[in-house]
Design a binder for these strands. Structure first.
Lengths: 90, 90
DNA sequence: TGATAGGTTATCATATTTGATAGACACATC
DNA sequence: GATGTGTCTATCAAATATGATAACCTATCA
């Protein structure tokens, strides 16, 4: 998964969560305290948002960052991929 | 939870996950393909990383973004944090 | 003593996000 | 036709992340 596909998927995830709550881009942007154009930019995957920007959006959607990230498209590591965490010497 | 506390908590979370795998900052930075000084900056909460930077770190740690965010300190939604449902739509 | 590893902080140039504004498009409604 | 809503794109200045280098500190070890 390349970066631009990830950003598109993340934007789609935000859009889906917003639509679930029947909120317009403009309204969500208003709660986040930025312009609707910037919200569109994020939802379309046209930017690589900082974690604080995502936090602001999550707060506006009344969800946690964990919930935003809890989406298969955004998580491609399998349990088997993480071998190191299973060979802790403790 | 203000922004700088969140960034400090996020950095601490990364550091904890790294330590769990007995990896040095330098080694993790190497896999991420950036300098150890930049990794230190992130772990100390001195910067507001983009989601792609966090993704790179997660891939290096062989974990998912969901796992990175699945930490109480980073998920503090409360009614006081967000009052959208109480806000009149004007 | 000296050398090495791990970590931190400072600084700088460059790249990119952000904030803001404007314009465009489709669609519905009056 | 005219108006309003929702979305998207482009553009710009300002703010900030990134990449890179250097210096410094502490602890460990030969």
């Amino acid at each position: 998964m390349d970066n631009s596909k990830f950003l598109t998927a993340l934007g789609g995830r935000i859009k889906a969560l917003r639509s679930d709550q029947n909120i317009s881009q403009q309204e969500l942007a208003g709660v986040c305290d930025f312009e609707k154009a910037n919200m569109s930019r994020i939802e379309s995957g046209g930017t690589n948002p900082t974690i604080l920007t995502l936090l602001k959006i999550c707060l506006a959607l009344k969800i946690n960052l964990r919930d935003l990230m809890d989406h298969e498209e955004l998580n491609c590591i399998s349990e088997e991929d993480n071998s190191r965490s299973f060979k802790d010497t403790r």
